[in-house]
Design a protein around this nucleic acid. Structure first.
Length: 911
RNA sequence: GCCGAUGUGGUGAAAUGGUAAACACAGCGGACUUAAAAUCCGCUGGAGGGCAACCUCCUUGCCGGUUCGAGUCCGGCCAUCGGCACCA
């Protein structure tokens, strides 16, 4: 028996047929403002998928989950009168293609193109209503021209702290002493000679350049990165385990390298604040807030004591160390100080006696990766520098230690340690026998016994420290104040004495934006005399050179260095050799969809205004994708968008108004799908076995979109059966196995019961689609199908209405059945594609029944029910309930204390 | 450790504070068939009672609370999953 015969309905014939029709007739082309067929009177709906990285493995079942959800929404909105923008594209730069290229010698462009062709075929086989004319590809020079262009905008902008906005560097105001002198302008009361003026301006111009370079949003810095000699590349922190590379287990060292950074930290506050108005899952907002990690506190400056042990040449230096603390109110409890081992002052303050120990410790720390440093967090380590700081509140000398639990990258790289009120300081103090002074006491005096219980006498080594708010004690002028009041008072005191001031700190670091890779966007930057400058926009796109050998060089020199001709920009200038990270292209792709072919601008004003502006609050109306991008892509894209907004290129401060995270699909065994577990489901197999509609429907029926849920092949079978039932509503098979339009289908109105079921389905599906509650929408359609099945004669027009509701979910089947009905009842079916139809209205009158079932409860327990006329009054219903024999039985002859009547629902009699 | 999410039948799940388990899957029984597949119909949370149609009690992780009424709201626990993790 051939598999063809086994199929309950011929999806393998009509699915490709309709995909071909839609493509040939451009059924889902979305006109842009300015196009002849653009209808500006319609509202817009921009529904966005996270575009895939076209990997060699092809689509996995997680992709169609989000894509089907957005497809249903998009098709529904289109039928509801919106101009719908629902595009697809490729995030195609990236390491896997490059690694594959290194292994096989195939150029990444070749593998990338092949993978895109495969992905395209797979997506088209699922019948998604994408406007393929808007396809974007981040590796296309016509695309990355604008990625480079945006980089130049970042490069040529600075963050003005007074306006809190990105501005062109031209608005940067230099100190008057650094302004260039105009001819004839006075300097120190006299006009310099022309010769001198040129000399002075040369010096000043150089100073200005340095200033600008230090404020640009794209800037160069020497950040320590994870460098792996054997792999010949830098690695992300996630790729380093126990100081070894995750791949190959090679040694990874921390080494400072010249890197491009983007000044995302300047936007930290706005990135937090502007989350508030977004319709995103609270958990994702929280993840971003925590990632940005704002904390309020104060800088406090400590003098380093003039220790006699310091050598004479260090005596007059009298350095100061500034710490960041969120608890300035505990200053009286600061019994020692810790500075990061990399802190620049370490060498200056270390006493000769401690020099060897300190340098040894520094060396041991340098080789550790950040990950290693935190993984060994359990056990505190550190070394005394021999120096002392003076606590400004009580002039006590406190020892200065170095320890790797203090990180150079956060705050000032130095802390005042308050062991009584900080767990880490407590652990450190215990290990090294440093004094512990309590300066805050718990406020609740009425539960001392519980406290005693919590800390059993003596033996417990991990005495819990009290890190909460309380009342200041042992704190001089702060005594008796609550923690918030003490914070205010000490802040004022510090400020008055010039010893410190309130500050806000963020965990967010600037974005390391360069990679030593071949398969990425080259920077539009050249170097000359050790200085960088941008290339003119007219030279964009800057296409990477065609390299035969894209293997790593074995040195920190990026592979692009091998293209010697390309590297040479002029006799004296050479190109930047690093490339941008994969995130670059995905930071703005949603904008390019709005105007993908524009060669004059990254997006036209009209297109931006319509698709990204368009009413309040604007932006992408719905963005669906996985949680894995909660903090990286979604933060980076918001950052770029804000810069473009500040510079006037886009009209909203936020790109994605509504975000929904689809839940991961697990394997049938409830484990994460992976090749090694052998539980990976290939969507192609599902499509060939059960059809695209069954796959779409199943993925939507599995459960709530946001939820993690396991795959079940028998669940797909169930959806296939449902579709077959719908098919047989319209079609019947003769003895030869040929399908034709069923004789039960007639040009008649449907009966009351079916009409009610149909209108309930229209109502519920419309509401559920808006809520993204697709599983319940599908169950409603199943109920409706059962109602149709029960009717002997089927109303063709009612079924066509049902098919319109079904069409966003199972577009192929709906389209085919509509066409079949049209062949027999031309007037009753949709004349063209169902997607061009208007979403049906439901008739509220059809939903109303003459009678409703009312439940009778006695003391909250269900005892009886009865059908009651819909218009019955409360009193009437109560009377019917009290008359019930079963109700009376359970009332046991008592008089009701209270009777609650919910019309159309229930009666509860309390006795 | 901190933060977040989730706990309902054998399974995926449903339920504006108002009949818990809709809709499916799996299972069992039946119809059709020489037979099987497909299809259609019925049963299917637990315990107890009845020849029976039926009836009673229990049941949404655990313990309390609010309410005429709680899966849903509040407080406290427990478990699982996810994220962050020496951030001063």
């Amino acid at each position: 028996m051939s598999s063809e015969q086994r199929k309950a309905f011929p999806f393998s014939e009509f699915e490709p047929k309709w995909q071909g029709e839609w493509e040939a007739k451009k059924a889902f082309r979305t006109p842009n403002p300015g196009d002849a067929d653009f209808d500006a009177s319609k509202p817009k709906y921009f529904v966005l998928d996270m575009f895939p990285y076209p990997s060699g493995n092809g689509l996995h079942v997680g992709h169609p989950e989000g894509y089907t959800a957005t497809d249903i929404i998009g098709r529904f909105k289109k039928m509801s009168g919106f101009n719908v923008l629902h595009p697809m594209g490729w995030d195609a730069f990236g390491l896997p293609a490059e690694q594959y290229a290194i292994k096989t010698g195939t150029h990444p462009r070749v593998t990338t193109e092949a993978n895109i062709a495969n992905f395209t075929k797979q997506l088209k086989s699922l019948g998604f209503a994408y406007d393929w004319d808007r396809e974007v590809n981040t590796t296309d020079p016509g695309y990355f021209k604008w990625t480079q262009w945006i980089f130049l905008k970042l490069y040529n902008s600075w963050f003005n702290p007074s306006t809190k906005r990105a501005e062109p560097v031209s608005t940067y105001r230099f100190h008057p002493d650094d302004d260039l002198l105009a001819p004839g302008e006075e300097l120190d009361g006299k006009v310099p000679s022309e010769q001198n003026r040129i000399e002075i301006n040369k010096v000043r111009a150089e100073k200005q350049r340095e200033f600008l370079d230090s404020v640009r949003l794209a800037f160069v810095s020497s950040a320590p990165v994870n460098w792996c000699q054997e792999l010949g590349t830098v690695l992300a922190n996630e790729e380093v385990v126990d100081g070894k590379s995750e791949v190959g287990g090679f040694t990874v060292e921390r080494r400072p390298m010249r890197q491009w950074m983007l000044r995302i930290t300047a936007f930290a506050q706005r990135l937090i604040d502007e989350l508030d108005g977004l319709d995103w899952p609270e958990s994702i907002k929280l993840l971003q807030r925590n990632w940005i990690g704002r904390s309020e506190g104060a800088h406090v400056t400590f003098k380093v004591a003039q220790a006699s042990s310091l050598p004479p040449d260090k005596q007059d230096a009298c350095p100061t160390i500034t710490v960041f603390t969120t608890r300035p109110d505990t200053l009286f409890g600061a019994t020692y100080m810790v500075i990061a081992p990399e802190h620049p002052l370490v060498s200056q303050i270390t006493t000769p006696a401690q020099l060897e120990a300190v340098e040894g410790y520094q060396k041991s720390v340098v080789s550790k990766s950040d990950l290693e440093r935190t993984e060994l967090a359990k056990d505190k380590s550190g070394v005394f520098t021999g120096a002392y700081a003076i606590n400004p509140v009580n002039d006590e000398q406190i020892p200065i230690w170095i320890a790797d639990y203090v990180l150079m990258g956060y705050g000032t790289g130095a802390i005042m340690a308050v062991p009584a009120h900080d767990q880490r300081d407590m652990e450190f103090a215990k290990k090294f026998d440093l004094p512990i002074t309590t300066v805050v006491e718990r406020e609740c005096p009425h539960s001392p016994s519980e406290e005693a219980k919590a800390a059993p006498a003596g033996e417990d080594t991990r005495t819990p420290c009290f890190a909460g708010d309380g009342i200041a004690v042992n704190s001089g002028f702060l005594d008796g104040l609550t923690t918030p009041d003490a914070k205010k008072k000490i802040a004022a005191w510090l400020e008055e004495k010039g010893l410190g001031k309130g500050t806000t700190n963020f965990k967010l670091r600037d974005w390391l934006f360069s990679r030593q890779r071949y398969w990425g966007e080259p920077f539009p930057i050249v170097w000359e005399d050790g200085k960088h400058r941008s290339i003119p926009e007219s030279e964009l796109p800057l296409v990477p050179p065609t390299l035969e050998d894209f293997k790593p060089t074995g040195t920190p020199e990026p592979p692009l260095s091998k293209a010697t001709d390309w590297v040479r920009y002029s006799d004296t200038a050479t190109r930047e050799l690093n490339t941008m990270p994969q995130w670059a292209g995905s930071c703005w792709y949603y904008l390019r969809y709005c105007d993908p072919k524009n060669s004059e601008r990254f997006i036209s004003e009209a297109a931006e205004n319509y698709w990204m502006g368009g009413g309040k609050p604007g932006g992408v109306d719905l963005y669906v994708g996985g949680t894995e991008h909660a903090v990286l892509h979604l933060l980076y894209a918001r950052f770029w968008h804000k810069v473009l907004f500040d510079l006037g290129y886009v009209s909203t401060p936020e790109p994605f108004q509504r975000l929904v995270n689809q839940g991961l699909i697990l394997g049938e065994d409830g484990q994460k799908m992976s090749k090694s577990r052998g539980n990976v489901v290939n969507p192609d197999d599902v499509v060939s076995e059960y059809g695209a509609d069954a796959l779409r429907l199943y993925e939507m029926f599995m459960g709530p979109l946001e939820q993690v849920k396991p795959w079940s092949t028998s669940g797909v079978v169930g959806q296939s059966r449902f579709l077959a039932r719908v098919w047989r509503l319209v079609m019947e098979q003769n003895d030869e196995g040929t399908w034709s339009v069923s004789t039960a289908l007639q040009d008649v109105p449907s009966n009351k019961q079916v009409t009610k079921a149909l209108h309930e389905t229209i109502k519920k599906c419309g509401e559920d689609i808006e809520k993204l509650s697709f599983n319940t929408a599908i169950s409603a359609m199943m109920v409706c199908t059962t109602a149709f099945t029960g009717a002997e004669v089927k109303s063709a027009s009612a079924i066509v209405t049902f098919l319109k509701v079904l069409s966003p979910f199972a577009p192929h089947l709906a389209e085919e059945l509509n066409a079949q009905i049209r062949s027999k009842f031309p007037g009753l079916a949709a004349p063209g594609f169902l997607s061009d139809e208007i979403w049906p209205n439901y008739d509220p009158a059809a939903l109303i029944e003459d009678e409703v079932e009312v439940v009778f409860q006695v003391n909250g327990k269900l005892r009886d029910k009865a059908r009651v006329p819909i218009q019955a009054t409360k009193e009437e219903i109560e009377k019917i309930a009290l008359a019930s024999a079963r109700v009376q039985e359970f009332m046991e002859g008592k008089t009701p204390k209270k009777v609650i009547v919910v019309p159309g629902k229930l009666v509860n009699i309390v006795v």
